[in-house]
């Protein structure tokens, strides 16, 4: 926040430009971070393959809309659906049978999954960087003196919609409330009829859908290739940590602030160091305030 005000004061129009493009990227990080948070809060698992879900989403979107010529909306739905099925299938086939895995086991298994997806994508789609057409033209427009592409509006809109839907799901539906209960105290939740396996499945499904849609809506701006998942995943994770892991509003705040911070750093310093920001933030937050800027004090396992 302070940073935003200082930048705005120093450089009016460039500052605004940075902030708006930062928010665009930040929205994507927020979606990714929500994916991490959902799985972590209900199962205490960190899914290292989260970034790969978004890569797969982007790749499938490319195949459906550019190769097969299916209209954007239907390809979007189709791609998200397929990735969601993959996520749910993985939970059922690998995570679920493990019962009570150790932390190292689960880290290594999800890393194995991410390597597998990345290599499979390289095999299927090759190493080229693929472009997807923006959803509604690519004519930039002016907003308060800053230039924006229409895709940014799609991204803002979609993120807002997702946040609202997630809020409704976790606060107004029985399943969502049950998942929050299971996150708080698994044993007590089981006693009142929340089934942990079902919670885990739903969490993985939501996370895969979030990852896939994030990967699809960012693709027209940043392109898509077999290795985009790594960076998206890591930055989504850094955002989740920044905001407070397992705390949904934290994921949004973390994502947006990381996006803005990164764009400002890229504007001031050589842009090669841009990626280091996320990791620096990640390490510093983990060391100084592991519960994140918004998270509550919680005993770390």
């Amino acid at each position: 926040m302070v940073l935003i005000i200082v930048t705005l004061a120093l450089k009016k129009s460039t500052g605004l430009q940075w902030i708006l493009s930062g928010l665009t990227v930040g929205s994507i990080y927020a979606l990714m971070a929500m994916g991490f948070s959902v799985i972590f809060s209900s199962t205490r698992v960190i899914n290292f393959a989260q970034g790969e879900f978004s890569m797969l989403g982007g790749m499938l979107m490319y195949t459906f809309s550019n190769r097969a010529g299916i209209p954007a909306l239907y390809s979007f739905i189709l791609s998200v659906l397929i990735v969601t099925l993959i996520g749910a299938g993985f939970e059922r086939l690998v995570i679920h049978p493990l019962k009570k895995p150790s932390v190292i086991t689960i880290i290594l298994i999800t890393i194995g999954l991410s390597i597998f997806f990345r290599a499979a994508a390289k095999w299927i789609w090759g190493t080229d960087t693929l472009a997807i057409a923006p959803f509604s033209g690519d004519k930039p427009f002016k907003l308060l003196g800053a230039t924006l592409v229409p895709q940014s509006l799609w991204i803002f809109g979609f993120t807002l919609l997702t946040v609202v839907l997630m809020f409704i799901f976790f606060n107004r539906t029985i399943l969502g409330k049950g998942m929050r209960a299971a996150a708080e105290n698994p044993e007590a939740a089981t006693l009142v009829g929340v089934s942990p396996p079902a919670t885990s499945l739903v969490a993985w499904t939501i996370a895969a859908a979030l990852g896939a849609s994030a990967g699809i809506i960012i693709a027209p701006i940043k392109f898509v290739s077999f290795d985009v998942g790594v960076m998206l995943g890591l930055k989504g994770f850094a955002s989740a940590i920044l905001g407070g892991l397992g705390y949904a509003p934290g994921a949004v705040v973390g994502g947006l602030s990381l996006g803005v911070l990164e764009t400002i750093v890229a504007g001031v310093f050589p842009s090669g160091y841009k990626d280091a920001v996320a990791f620096l933030v990640l390490v510093i937050v983990l060391l100084l305030r592991p519960q994140g800027i918004l998270g509550r004090q919680e005993k770390l396992e």
Partner: peptide, 20 residues
């Protein structure tokens, strides 16, 4: 001082800073 997932992610971040 970090444990489990947090340690994994912190070391990952440090390794990536080294690479950059």
């Amino acid at each position: 001082k970090l444990k489990g997932h947090y340690l994994a992610m912190a070391t990952l971040g440090l390794g990536e800073i080294g690479f950059i």
